[in-house]
Amino acid sequence: MNFAELTSAIKPVDLRSCLISQDGQMLYEYYRNQQIPQEIAKVNSCTKSILSALICIAMDRGIIPEANTPIATFFPRLLDDPDPRKREITIEHLLTMTAGFSWTEFGGQKSFPRMTRSSNWIDFVLEQPLSEDPGTRMEYSSGVSQLLSAILVQASGKTTARFAEEEVFGPLGIEDYTWEADPQGIHTGGYGMRMRPADMHKFGQLYLQQGRWGQAQLISAERLLRSVQPAIPASPPNFGLYGWHWWTHTYREESVEQQLNTAPSPAFHYYYARGYAGQYIYIVPSLKIVAVTTDDKRKKERHPANVFLDYIAPILLKA
């Protein structure tokens, strides 16, 4: 693959880092400066996809029951809630963000900032009314991610970070990281992790290898594949589909000539972890590609380009 022009293309974007590998071999590695490879930085909502891996592992181990288990098993207060629909919310509803809670992450109700200002985040989420039946529609929510982190703590008897260290970070050699926690000490399921770009890449490589690292099967291939399958359309303004705390989409080359042609246009499917302000981990299984991009600029300072869709994906498609 020819990445010779990629550096000049992404230079105006002023990314913090960009890493691209194929079948475990690094093809392209860019850092804004030489300090960045060793610096940990916010991955924001990429934390959600890491949490998804931990939930899958806990299910594999029998620590957490299957995805169709009602969350009232862990939060019995829901059995007495005036809205009987809350008793129908399952672990899978949390993973696909279809629990039905009345929630707008930012803007509108500003649910996320209100949660982080509350004294007990779990209580705050569980007390929110339902705006629709569970399983009906995806509504992006770091609140349901916090419920998943709390479930993992209850079921494993360990902090979420300790479970991650034992089951994923240790085997992958990820030692340099930090992870925020709520007032009760439950690590933030929806955000709050800081990592190095190379360690984000290791996590993506674990998924490309269907949960296998070296001689160890850290996540069962069956569970991993289920977690990245499209489960529900993403809620606007998001695009594509959503799985178990993973985004999924298909990149397709569209041009006037191809639109007039009846033959299918070239395309590839990919799934990705996405964090606010330009943190991404992309996996393209058919091409054995893992790509990581990170950024650190404020919204008004960020370039409007989507580096993966605008620059990287066309190169991959040509190859």
Rank of each mutant, 00 (worst) to 15 (best):
R87S: 11
R87Q: 15
R87G: 09
E88D: 13
E88S: 07
E88Q: 06
I89C: 05
I89E: 03
I89A: 02
T90Q: 07
T90E: 07
I91Y: 01
I91G: 00
I91Q: 00
E92C: 05
E92K: 06
E92N: 09
H93C: 05
H93T: 01
L94F: 01
L94H: 00
L95Y: 03
L95Q: 05
L95P: 01
L95R: 02
T96L: 05
T96P: 05
M97D: 01
M97A: 11
M97E: 04
M97P: 01
M97G: 02
M97T: 04
M97K: 04
T98D: 06
T98L: 03
A99D: 05
G100C: 06
G100P: 06
G100I: 03
G100S: 08
F101V: 08
F101Q: 02
S102E: 08
S102D: 10
W103I: 04
T104E: 10
T104D: 04
T104S: 09
T104W: 01
E105H: 04
E105V: 07
E105G: 10
F106C: 02
F106K: 02
F106N: 06
F106M: 07
F106V: 03
F106I: 02
F106Y: 15
F106G: 01
G107R: 06
G107E: 06
G107L: 07
G108S: 13
G108K: 10
Q109N: 13
Q109G: 11
Q109P: 07
S111C: 13
S111Y: 03
S111H: 10
S111A: 14
S111G: 09
F112A: 06
F112T: 02
P113C: 13
P113R: 14
P113W: 11
R114T: 15
R114L: 12
R114Q: 13
M115P: 12
M115D: 13
M115Q: 12
M115E: 09
T116S: 14
T116L: 14
T116C: 14
R117F: 15
R117G: 15
R117H: 15
R117E: 15
S118L: 08
S118Y: 09
S118W: 12
S118R: 09
S118A: 13
S119V: 14
S119R: 12
N120Y: 14
N120G: 12
N120Q: 15
N120T: 14
